[in-house]
Simulated scan of single mutants.
Amino acid sequence: MTTVVLLRHGRTQANSTGVLAGRSSGVGLDAAGEEQARQAATRLAGAPLAAVVSSPLLRCRRTAAAVVAEHDGLDVRTDPGLIECGYGDWTGRTLSELAKEPLWQTVQNQPSAVRFPGGESMVEMAARAVRTIRDTDARIAAEHGDDAVWVAVSHGDVIKAILADALGVHLDSFQRILVDPASISVVRYTETRPYVACTNTVAGDLTGLLTPPPRRSRRGRRGGGSPTADAPVGGGLGAHGR
């Protein structure tokens, strides 16, 4: 039961001024974003991290660097599968201007039908992001065991698409999910299904969510209980009820 920490990059000047940065190069964190990244890193300082994987864009690499600074022996590995959605001709324009475009309402209400002019479709973005997370998760589980905890640093729409997949909802519902700058969401992947442990958290202790669950017998049961990857009937004890 590997655990993936989905961390959005900290705030950028583009965020604060309402500009769609997209894949623009050189967009780093502003002062508030640097502090947000440090706070997120502090929240993860006690977690037994096996890896930190980042979008190749600067704002994510700076956020990831704050995380690895709290962990000896870790470095940041970049993966293009976690890069921001390709917004094409929308890149660099203000959100207030884009809201007047006819495509804006489709983005809001039926993102699965959207292809950004000169860019990527949201379906393509979601597919490569989910594939990257699941493939990386399988590799880390093979290398570090099923109790491995790792961090993926990415972008708002990308993380929303990953969470929508983990929640089993259609991409057209992903605009109902909030992912704030430097927020942390946690997903556990099992052979049965993903479990979404939390979303969009910006404060609080993560120890209980990132502590591996107790081992069960080789037959997958403990005291006649449910198999390891099964959802507990009635809700179970929760992360703090061990």
Rank of each mutant, 00 (worst) to 15 (best):
T2F: 13
V4L: 11
V5H: 00
R8E: 03
R8L: 01
G10W: 06
N15I: 02
S16E: 07
L20F: 04
L20V: 12
L20N: 02
G22A: 08
G22H: 09
G22L: 08
R23S: 13
R23K: 08
R23E: 12
S25W: 15
S25I: 14
G28H: 00
G28S: 05
G28L: 03
A32M: 10
G33L: 04
E35H: 12
Q36W: 00
A37C: 03
A37Q: 00
R38H: 04
R38Y: 05
Q39A: 09
T42E: 13
R43E: 01
L44K: 00
A45V: 15
G46M: 11
A50N: 01
A50M: 06
S54N: 05
L58M: 13
L58G: 08
R61Y: 14
R61K: 14
A65W: 08
A66K: 01
A69T: 14
A69W: 11
A69D: 13
D75A: 13
R77T: 13
T78A: 07
P80A: 15
L82Q: 04
L82K: 06
D89Y: 15
D89L: 14
D89M: 14
R93V: 08
R93Q: 14
T94R: 10
S96V: 05
L98H: 00
L98S: 02
K100E: 10
E101Q: 04
E101H: 08
E101V: 06
P102S: 01
P102M: 03
Q105T: 09
Q105A: 09
N109C: 10
Q110K: 15
P111A: 02
A113L: 07
F116D: 11
E120I: 04
M122W: 09
E124W: 02
E124F: 02
M125F: 13
M125Q: 03
A129E: 02
V130W: 07
V130Y: 07
R134Q: 12
D135R: 08
T136N: 09
A138E: 11
I140Q: 15
I140N: 13
D146A: 05
D146P: 10
D147M: 01
A148N: 01
V151M: 08
G156T: 03
D157Q: 08
D157M: 09
D157L: 10
V158R: 02
K160N: 03
A161L: 07
A164W: 00
A164D: 00
A166V: 02
A166R: 01
G168V: 15
L171N: 00
F174W: 09
F174K: 06
Q175G: 13
R176P: 14
L178Q: 15
V179Y: 08
S183P: 00
I184Q: 01
S185P: 05
R188Y: 15
Y189P: 01
T190I: 05
T192I: 09
R193I: 14
P194H: 12
V196S: 06
C198V: 04
G204A: 08
G204L: 05
L206E: 01
T207L: 14
T207Q: 15
L209Q: 01
R215V: 11
S217N: 13
G220T: 09
G223Q: 07
G224S: 13
G224E: 12
S226G: 14
T228F: 15
T228W: 15
T228G: 07
A231C: 12
P232L: 14
R242T: 12
